[in-house]
């Protein structure tokens, strides 16, 4: 509910228009009707004190199907999502799962050490943990008093 000063100024037509505009914006923001295309795979990025974790939803794939490349402060995830052989000659009722070759490069917030990377696959979710090189880590500097 929008609060308007009804008492002194009477009915405010602009308040109703603003309300209508806000309602319309919310309707389109939710975008449930026409979801926008987004890069594959979708990723989440987590940051810790000296490491960064990238998780990606890659259902149906396992460790052998995905290639990870690290170069300075970028991580590239590439692979291919195939569909079942028998499906090629089948009659389709619904086809929503994306398939094909993918490659995605994600910019990391800092340089990472390629020798200290841990990656695992868990029920179709890829998790890559990367460490910041020792030399790049932020250091606390003590301030000397007089």
């Amino acid at each position: 509910m929008q609060l308007t000063q009804m008492g002194r100024t009477g009915w405010d037509p602009f308040a109703e228009m603003r309300q209508l505009q806000a309602d319309m914006n919310r309707l389109f923001d939710n975008a449930g009707v026409f979801p926008a295309a987004q890069a594959y795979p979708p990723v989440n990025l987590w940051i810790g004190d000296s490491s960064v974790v990238v998780t990606a939803e890659l259902p149906g794939l396992s460790a052998e199907d995905v290639e990870l490349t690290i170069r300075e402060d970028t991580l590239t995830i590439s692979g291919e999502r195939r569909q079942a052989e028998e499906a090629e000659h089948a009659g389709w009722h619904r086809r929503e799962r994306p398939h094909g070759v993918f490659s995605r490069t994600i910019g990391l917030p800092f340089r990472v050490d390629p020798d200290q990377v841990q990656a695992k696959f868990d029920n179709g979710v890829l998790e890559v943990e990367m460490q910041r090189p020792e030399a790049d880590r932020p250091r606390k500097i003590a301030i000397n008093g007089n």
Partner: peptide, 8 residues
């Protein structure tokens, strides 16, 4: 869930 349905 994204779903494929096909018929052989």
């Amino acid at each position: 869930p994204d779903t494929d349905i096909y018929e052989t």
